[in-house]
Write a protein that binds this DNA or RNA. Sequence first.
DNA 1: GCTGTGCTTCCGCTCAGTGGAAGCGACGGC
DNA 2: GCCGTCGCTTCCACTGAGCGGAAGCACAGC
Lengths: 267, 267
Amino acid sequence: MPGGAREKGRTVASRLLAIIGAFDAAHPRLTLTEIAARTGLALSTVHRLVAELEDWRALGRDEDGRYHVGRRMWELGQLAPDPLQEVARPWLQEVFAGTGENVHIAVRDGAEVLYVDKVYGRQAVPIVSRAGGRLPMHPTGVGKVLLAFEPAWFVSAYLSRSLERPTPHTITEPGRLARELTQVRARGYATTHEEMTLGSCSAAAPVFLDGRLLAAVGIVVSSRRVRELPRLIDPLLTAAQGIARDYRAAVAPRTEYGADAGRLAGR
Amino acid sequence: MPGGAREKGRTVASRLLAIIGAFDAAHPRLTLTEIAARTGLALSTVHRLVAELEDWRALGRDEDGRYHVGRRMWELGQLAPDPLQEVARPWLQEVFAGTGENVHIAVRDGAEVLYVDKVYGRQAVPIVSRAGGRLPMHPTGVGKVLLAFEPAWFVSAYLSRSLERPTPHTITEPGRLARELTQVRARGYATTHEEMTLGSCSAAAPVFLDGRLLAAVGIVVSSRRVRELPRLIDPLLTAAQGIARDYRAAVAPRTEYGADAGRLAGR
DNA sequence: GCTGTGCTTCCGCTCAGTGGAAGCGACGGC
DNA sequence: GCCGTCGCTTCCACTGAGCGGAAGCACAGC
């Protein structure tokens, strides 16, 4: 690269992306020096590139000088076409309307759960899931569902790793977890009891599309109300089926008449 | 710059940002050639940079070869700290729960309305507003509110431009619009009747923070149900006040004890 | 006043980036 | 079946934009 003893083969674009990629759920606010450290770039390089990103509002800066992802990024992100979220939202609302609890939908991304959307109200217990956030699979309701219906090789690969243990109730013992997953497949839904957060329990149902697992819908309630969980299964299953149906309807035109694909995402 | 007859003073970063900035609500899906045209960059340059963006999942590509904003951008955008959205959501839910209609919150950005969040269900009429989307101020409920409480110079500057006219009912005549705004100030809320979309009418209320206008909460219903609009004003005003209160509570620690600022956005 | 932390500015070296051009494959009109 | 068009991909020689080490600055804590 131009200049001194720079690392070879690193493009400007990759540096820029590394900088914005330095921000994640665990590090949403960073100083210049932290960005430099996390990206392995020289401070002066980061300084220049960050200034340009800030100019463009891709990054913002707060009073204490730390940088954070800017509103323009949020706006841009909203353009990412996600038919699943679009289609699921009304169904999450439906479940929320009947329960007043946290309802969310997630997909598997790698070996993690990626939350695609979330609906919550004033009464709901605060929970860790966040739209755009990621959590491990085994301690979450949606995660168990997403894991249970993966092929055997995937499941055993997942179980063979050392599993995080966010609470004492988290099931990390492979044998027990495997039995748990068998039960999920048999019953068609999953539940958790304080396995991710003390004080919360959850239920989740799979969204199948033509026999393939697409996503999972989940609900999280205070563990004082475990008793009510069974009552919430049916609404979840209904929503899951509704989402699958609407999703197929929304996506079908795209794959069947390729030329029309633009129309859908374009509105 | 390096190479041939390139335009001077344009940095790589600015090119990259120009490329992602080429995507907007009106152009969410673009071909390589379109991106090149919209950014004024050489096709080969766009090709190279876009490939890098695609590698990083900042852009995605669909079957027909068009590019679109990628999921990674969406994830990243979700990190943009927005206390307003965070705080408003439960209140929007509250209004939605009581009405089943489209409820949204917007801020002014330049001379446009920027929708920050939106809640809708299965029954609600489809509307044009979209989280992250922008609309002109004068034909929308939230826009009228946001305009009405701006200083006089801003309002007259806005009125002196030629105003879009999405429907025959849109009020574009400056005198009439000014009277409309006076009424909004007097009543403390705004209404519209098919001014943005035929078949829809709306109401909106201002969110004041320490005497400064922060945002507007709005509701949109089918114009067959105009009669019900008055009934919706009170819930809107309540939500607006609730949002203001919660927002102050959420933001106050940040400005008062600077050192703690990180904590809030960091969760 | 000294030390540490984090940001900003400066500058000379050099290779990463540039864009024109040519090649390629698919489609459609005649 | 041929040719024009459209959109994407690959190639390459030139060069100034970008790089990062280093020095300077501002502020806070001891």
